[in-house]
Amino acid sequence: MQILTGEARQYYIKKYPIDDFFSFDIYPYLEVCQFDKGEWIFQEGSYPDTMYYMIEGKTKLYMTHKNGKVSLIEYLEAPRFMGEIELLNEARYTKGIQTVTTTICLSIATQPCKERLLADALFLRRLCVFLGEKATTMTSKYTQNQAYPLENRLAAFIQLSSDQGIYKEKHTEICEYLGVSYRHLLYVLAQFCEENILEKQKNGYHIIDVQRLNQLAQEIQ
């Protein structure tokens, strides 16, 4: 993680102001952070004293089950809070969050202002709206898995998870995430290649036909 200072800090604060999220001056508790692709924002099982507001980038949320199996729960896109549940929950046990792309966050040191945050009606109202939208998104993902064929769901997933036009997620991870068999996933990926939507290369699948991929993905949006 790199803390941005000087002109870079001012640039992001001006571009993504969050003054209206709070009823007090949050800037003394705030830093602008840049995470490289593949870097962990939260290690699973850690006890963070920071809440992040992601303003640019994408991340993945992981969870390890009691049997040791690791599951990809969700892809997270800016703008959104991360670490808000840990702020509200005294147990403060977090899931793992790893970046998919270079990611810029506004970092709020919660311990020095925790009582003010938890007593701030303006912030809590904003947080309630965000948590409601997050719950709706998770419900929508579940119903999409039941209602739409893999072609549409995979197209939407490739849009979400690709970086600079390249898709290269782990097949086993995505099979579980989308609720499909390994064989079915490979079949649809091969189908996309045959239709020149994707092209398989050494570093992943390159998106060739963005328009067609968008058409498939938009059917479930």
Rank of each mutant, 00 (worst) to 15 (best):
L72A: 05
L72Y: 07
L72M: 04
E74H: 13
E74D: 10
E74R: 13
Y75R: 11
Y75W: 14
L76C: 06
L76M: 01
L76D: 00
L76S: 02
E77C: 15
E77K: 13
E77T: 15
P79G: 05
R80F: 15
M82H: 09
G83M: 09
G83R: 06
E84L: 13
E84P: 07
I85D: 00
E86S: 14
E86Q: 09
E86C: 14
L87N: 00
L87S: 00
L87K: 00
N89G: 07
N89R: 05
N89C: 13
E90R: 13
E90F: 15
E90Y: 15
E90I: 15
A91P: 03
R92S: 08
R92T: 10
R92E: 01
Y93M: 09
Y93C: 12
Y93K: 05
Y93Q: 07
T94V: 10
K95G: 15
K95L: 13
I97T: 12
I97H: 02
I97N: 04
I97C: 09
I97D: 00
Q98K: 14
Q98L: 11
T99Y: 02
V100Y: 05
V100A: 09
V100N: 03
V100R: 06
T102F: 12
T103E: 08
C105M: 09
S107P: 06
S107G: 08
I108G: 06
P112W: 07
C113N: 04
C113A: 09
C113K: 02
C113T: 07
C113G: 02
C113W: 07
K114Q: 04
L118N: 01
L118M: 10
A119V: 15
D120R: 09
D120C: 11
A121F: 13
L122G: 05
F123P: 02
R125N: 08
L127S: 02
L127I: 10
G132T: 14
G132Y: 10
G132D: 09
